[in-house]
Nucleic acid binder design. Structure first.
Length: 223
DNA sequence: GGCCAGGACACCA
DNA sequence: TGGTGTCATGGC
């Protein structure tokens, strides 16, 4: 599996180059963005983030002080704005109550304990937790998503239902735990998914509703 | 006007 | 454990 994963990475990197993720200025911005991007096009998240920046409240303290309705209004462009406002407030409340509003204190925890802590919060599931771990806390955790499942399904490397942990294990058990490598690999899979999806009928087992043009000629044999 | 985007959760069998 | 409904704006 290791060789196939490395070959896939080489293909994607040669095709798209460095993606320079996560597109944010601070770990806190990454964390908020990770919640806002749930089932949403990134372009809409940018609008919401820009609203928060324009209001000059993109800090744990300030964001935690504004009323929920005001937060809802500011993040509205990212969609699902009511539930996302609750999720952000749950995250902020935890940060305030347990870590003095300081991400550095939260991120100082041991990785698996930190992951469990994030997963215990309302609105933070596996992908969001791992995105925060990798892109904000810079822990060597591989982020998996629907694009990953679709790509692996088309390559014949997995079949059936989308199980986050199973898919993640394929990477974690085969590749060295390198933050920059994991960063680039996931970003490339997302980039590839965005670039290549809207032309052919969707495939069996695909968790996304959109269309995609697989199979690719990756030259990688199915397992 | 229809489809869908870098999920998570509630509820049900 | 698995399947389904809900949340919602904005681009194409």
């Amino acid at each position: 599996m290791r060789e196939k994963l490395l070959k896939l990475y080489e293909y994607l990197y040669a095709e798209y180059g460095a993606q320079n993720w996560w597109p944010a200025e601070t770990p806190f911005e990454v964390s908020i963005g990770a919640i806002l991007v749930q089932s949403t096009a990134w372009e809409n998240v940018v609008k919401a983030i820009n609203n928060l920046k324009a209001a000059d409240i993109l800090t744990p303290e300030r964001l935690g002080e504004i009323p929920q309705t005001e937060l809802e209004t500011l993040i509205r462009p990212s969609g699902y704005y009511r539930v996302k406002a609750k999720k952000i407030r749950a995250f902020l409340e935890h940060l305030r109550a347990h870590h003095q509003n300081r991400l550095a204190l939260l991120f100082a925890r041991e990785t698996s304990a930190l992951r469990k802590e994030l997963l215990s919060l309302y609105g933070i599931g596996e992908e969001t937790a791992d995105s925060i771990l990798l892109y904000a806390a810079e822990k060597p955790i591989f982020v998996v998503d629907a694009y990953t499942h679709r790509l692996f399904t088309r390559l014949g490397w997995v079949n059936g239902k989308y199980h986050y942990d199973r898919l993640q294990s394929i990477f974690m058990n085969s590749l060295p735990p390198d933050v920059q490598f994991f960063n680039e690999y996931h970003a490339l899979i997302v980039r590839h998914g965005k670039e290549t999806c809207r032309k052919m009928p969707r495939c069996e087992g695909c968790v996304l509703r959109q269309h995609c043009p697989y199979p690719l000629n990756l030259g990688i044999n199915p397992s």
